[in-house]
Design a protein around this nucleic acid. Structure first.
Lengths: 165, 165
DNA sequence: TCTACTTGCTTCGAGTTCGAAGCAGAGCTA
DNA sequence: TAGCTCTGCTTCGAACTCGAAGCAAGTAGA
C-alpha cells in the first residue's frame, strides 16, 4: 500500500513561509533606514541598543555574541568597527583579565538618538500598520513562548556545540 | 513643559523583538541542518524549492531575485554555484534573449527529497512545538496580511528603487 | 604547585552579500 | 530604420559572516 505523499500541514507551512518572508523584508527595510540615517548595520545597531539598555552601558563580548551574532569572531570584527568609529569603548574586564567589556560612549548614545525615530517609524509602518493593538499583543503572545523554547532547546552554534562536547 | 520621553508601545516592542529573535534563531538552525544534510545554504534551498514548486520546474532569474535575494548579482552568484553542482540548468529564455531561465534538474529534485524530511523536522521542533494547531493558524493569520502589506508598500531594494526612478 | 583542561577573545581564510558599473538584447518614437 | 531608453544579467570590489586555529588567562586535580 503506497504511503500517502506525506503532505505537511498547510497551515504550518503558511505560517512558516510568512514568518520567513516578513522577517526578511523587515530586516532589509531596517538595514536601509539605519544605513541612510547613521551608517549603521542592523547588527551594530543591535549591539549599541543592548549596551544602552544595560544599566552600566556595558556588556562582556561573549554575552553580546550569544545574543546577536552567531560567532565570537563576528563580534570581534563588529566591536573593532564600533570602537574605531568611537561609538563604543573596549576594555579588559576588571575581574577577568581575558574578558573584554564593551561600553557605549556618549557618541554612541547620540547616534542611537539620531537613528531611533526613523527606526521606529520603519518598524511601525512595515510591521504594525496592518496590525491592531490586540493583534500586536497576540503576535507577542505567540512568539515569545517560541523564542523561549528556541533559546532553551538547541545548541546555538557549531562553536557552542563543540565547546559543549 | 518637558516632552514625555516618547516611550514606544511595550507590546509592539515585545512582538518586534520576539519576531527578530525567533526568525534569527530559526534561520540559523535551518542553515545548520541544510548544510549537514546536503551541503545547502538556506538561500540555495529556497531557490530549489521555488523551482520545484513551479509547474515547469523553472523561473527567470529576476523573479527569483526579487523573491529570495535582494540583489541580482547575488542571484547570479548562487545560480552559478547551483549550476556547477548540477542541481540547476541555466539557459537563455526562448522569448527574450537577454533573460536567463533556471530549471531544476533531477539531481536537484533528488537533493531536495533527501533534505526535506530533516528540514521539516527542524522547523517542526523549533517553531511549532510550542504552538497548537490553533496557534499556528493564528500566527499565519497575523503574518500573512503583514507580508502582503510589506510586498505592496516599499521599494524592495536600492537597486529596485533606482530602477524605478 | 605543576600540569591539564577550560574559557574568552583574536586572527585568518573561505564563502556570501550587496551596489555600482558595464554590456547586450528589446522596445519605442520619429 | 536610426537613435534613445529600458531591461536582464554579469563582473567587480568592498564589506560582513562563519569556523578553525591559536594564544593567554583562569581553574581544578594530583
Amino acid at each position: 500500500m503506497p504511503e500517502p505523499p506525506h503532505s505537511v500541514d498547510p497551515v504550518q507551512l503558511g505560517a512558516y513561509f510568512a514568518l520567513v518572508e516578513v522577517s526578511d523584508l523587515l530586516r532589509y527595510a531596517i538595514e536601509q533606514q539605519l544605513r541612510e540615517a547613521g551608517g549603521l548595520t542592523f547588527v551594530r545597531f543591535q549591539i549599541l541598543m543592548r549596551l544602552r539598555l544595560s544599566p552600566t552601558g556595558s556588556h562582556r563580548m561573549t554575552d553580546l555574541a550569544d545574543a546577536i551574532v552567531h560567532s565570537r569572531s563576528g563580534l570581534t570584527y563588529q566591536a573593532g568597527l564600533l570602537e574605531k568609529a568611537g561609538l563604543v569603548a573596549r576594555a579588559p574586564s576588571v575581574d577577568d583579565e581575558r574578558s573584554v567589556t564593551l561600553t557605549i560612549t556618549e557618541a554612541g548614545r547620540a547616534l542611537l538618538a539620531t537613528v531611533l525615530p526613523g527606526h521606529e517609524e520603519v518598524v511601525g509602518q512595515m510591521l504594525f500598520e496592518p496590525l491592531s493593538r490586540a493583534d500586536a499583543q497576540r503576535l507577542a503572545d505567540l512568539l515569545e513562548p517560541v523564542r523561549d523554547h528556541m533559546r532553551a532547546a538547541p545548541p546555538r552554534s557549531a562553536e557552542a556545540r563543540r565547546r559543549r562536547t
